[in-house]
């Protein structure tokens, strides 16, 4: 891939000195952008998969102002709702969360001391539709309103759509960031190659006059630029490994009650970093190669 030596002393001038560092930074940022988009995509998929086909029914607490919560009456109403839902067509299973379950889920916000009945909390039922059947949400809503006025039937469609929209926007943003990074990287390479062309103008003319094809000269610039990119890629990878380890630690230490866990195995974390890193690396190599080639060719075209 690379020649043993260069007729042009490209490594001895300062024109390409910054290229490895810029490529390292560009690869690093591009990888982070792609990885962030991928990670959000994975999260969105996991979250939406978790609620796919599930419908949540929320029964508001049935209490009058100032009265204490009657847990037994609430339980009876939940049971009534569970039965009513089970009789509707297309319903596979209905799971009712008892008051203790609800209190436990609210524990991060309300504290461990809140006992069922202390607060007027809504009651929840999780309804699973039969495979391939879309339940009649309007009928469910009517049935629940009869049992508990103000009941809410939610198939999470709005939330899922918002999540999907967010994921798509982040992906687009990441794509835009990668595009900007690619353009910046390309500009840096073009600048470095132009400097190299100016510095080695005499040598290039000698090579040209003794019969070197444009390709011969172009190849030297391209190979040198790619070599600098490889060095930059290595530096970028070192930074990414450190960042990946940090993110893994941070993700593992998140409070699972506050945020859903990504639940990735260590090898999946490696894959999450390696795929964008490989893409960024190959992308930067391709950009460096193309930018160097194009710049040199345009310069050589001006020679007779």
């Amino acid at each position: 891939m690379f020649r043993r030596h260069y007729d042009l002393p490209l490594g001895r001038d300062g024109s390409g000195r910054l290229v490895p560092w810029i490529v390292a930074l560009m690869s690093y940022l591009a990888t982070l952008a792609i990885a962030a988009a991928l990670a959000l995509g994975i999260l969105a998929w996991r979250w939406t998969e978790g609620v796919a086909g599930a419908i949540t029914v929320l029964l508001p607490p049935a209490i009058e102002d100032g009265a204490a919560v009657n847990v037994k009456a609430e339980d009876a109403r939940v049971e009534q709702a569970r039965k009513a839902l089970g009789e509707l067509p297309g319903i596979g299973a209905v799971e009712a969360l008892d008051a203790a379950d609800v209190a436990r889920r609210l524990e991060p916000w309300l504290g461990a001391g809140a006992a069922p009945g202390d607060l007027p909390l809504p009651r929840l039922l999780v309804v699973r539709a039969q495979r391939g059947i879309k339940p009649d949400l309007a009928a469910m809503s009517r049935a629940m309103t009869e049992i508990a006025p103000g009941a809410v039937v939610d198939d999470h469609g709005v939330w899922r759509a918002e999540l999907a929209r967010l994921a798509a926007r982040v992906t687009a943003l990441a794509g835009f960031a990668v595009l900007l990074i690619a353009l910046s990287g390309s500009a840096v390479v073009v600048f470095a190659v132009r400097s190299g062309l100016a510095v080695h103008r005499d040598t290039i003319e000698v090579l040209h006059l003794i019969g070197a094809h444009d390709d011969y000269i172009t190849r030297q610039f391209r190979n040198h630029t790619m070599w600098l990119s490889v060095i930059g890629g290595m530096i970028g990878w070192a930074l990414l490994i450190a960042t990946g380890a940090f993110c893994y630690q941070a993700a593992e230490s998140l409070d699972p009650a506050l945020l859903p866990r990504m639940g990735l195995a260590p090898w999946q974390w490696v894959a999450l970093g390696a795929v964008p890193a490989a893409l960024s690396f190959l992308g930067m190599m391709a950009i460096a190669s193309a930018a160097a080639k194009r710049t040199v060719r345009r310069a050589l075209a001006k020679l007779v």
């Binding site: 007729d7 090579l207 003794i210 019969g211 094809h213």
Partner: peptide
């Protein structure tokens, strides 16, 4: 290497 140059480019 200077003398070899015309041969290398060929």
């Amino acid at each position: 290497d200077n003398v070899a140059l015309p041969l290398r480019v060929a």
